[in-house]
Design a protein around this nucleic acid. Structure first.
Lengths: 197, 197
DNA sequence: GTCTATAGTCCGATAGAC
DNA sequence: GTCTATCGGACTATAGAC
């Protein structure tokens, strides 16, 4: 073994393909994206790109699986061990992460709408993802005021987050964290949620 | 003048084109929809469809303008004259209308995500629509509890509605009105909003 | 690992017959 | 008003040279 960081050039290509794909899926969706576009972006031919991803659906699998491991799991799972986990606190952290990755949020927003159609190649992925997000969060022993329905507030919160992210992406120059702060004030009004957020 | 209902057959074609387009834009988006698909659906050739709509962008203008007049304006505008307009009440009415038009909601959800991209032919339409929705609602003298920020609660509510409609469309067989009832309970908690919803 | 070449299909749009 | 025919181009994917 002559190299300590193996296949660096191949990995660079892979990463370039992923980056270009995230950008294009966000902007044009899966149907609107062509292999030629990705190829041009990374300086290859169509055949060159296909060598890496096998097919157009391979592009999709690549970006979805790549992102899944790195983002979705770690965030909520990390709060299982906290002593006094607060829902508004968790939501604020998710938003803070997303605020730094607009292109990823853009891709997920575009694909998740396109994938409402049951025939879309990513439909099952997004349906599972929705189920898992709520299910994961419900495994935590949240510290909330009396008479609060945890399932309902989680569902409502994640729905609002999707909607506010769409608005954030539509109007450039806005601060997602600030927009969410206003949402938090509406979702967790202060007499009731004093000490719980 | 020999006919009392003029150009009936032409109008029928137009309506068939609109219906097929709403369906296809929802399922496949603007980029994913082909004139051939619409033509096949309404029993014409591509050239036949182009006779009615001029171009592919004409399809888009057709469905957006057709829907705009009939839906968006009437709903919130009608509450300006009410004596004691309630925000939760208005939202419930909007949801009730949408619950009966899943294909329209589907089209708007898909296109509004696709049109996040500033180069999308419907980008300006959706940006204006977002501005107008909040602006219209702010012209009403809502009856709300003290210490409630009307602008924030409206923005948060419409964002949540977008998100819950995505979830509704993703999982068939759910009742949108029931899903929204849970959201309403979270957004307008009962000690504070007693008598205001 | 990357290329060229090509197959085969589909695209939006136009011209012109009827 | 609807058709056929056609243009020029884009698409995914494969085969095979280097």
């Amino acid at each position: 073994m002559s190299s300590t960081s193996p296949t660096t050039q191949t990995d660079d290509r892979r990463n370039a393909i992923i980056e270009a794909t995230v950008e294009s899926f966000g902007k044009l969706g899966y149907y609107g994206t062509s292999l030629q576009r990705i190829a041009t972006e990374v300086g290859l031919t169509k055949a060159g790109v296909l060598h890496y991803v096998g097919s157009k659906e391979g592009l999709l699998s690549l970006v979805l699986s790549e992102v899944y491991d790195k983002e979705t799991v770690a965030l909520t799972a990390g709060m299982v061990t906290e002593e006094r986990p607060l829902i508004p606190d968790m939501l604020r952290r998710v938003v803070a992460v997303n605020a730094k990755r607009p292109s990823l949020v853009h891709m997920f927003s575009t694909l998740s709408a396109e994938a409402l159609d049951p025939d879309h190649p990513a439909h099952a992925y997004f349906a599972d993802r929705e189920r898992q997000t709520v299910a994961n969060a419900q495994n935590i022993n949240w510290f909330v005021p009396d008479n609060v329905n945890v399932e309902h507030i989680l569902q409502a919160s994640f729905a609002m987050m999707d909607g506010i992210q769409l608005r954030w992406l539509r109007s450039p120059g806005q601060d997602l964290n600030a927009m969410w702060a206003d949402c938090e004030a509406a979702l967790f009004p202060l007499p009731q949620w004093n000490g719980y957020r």
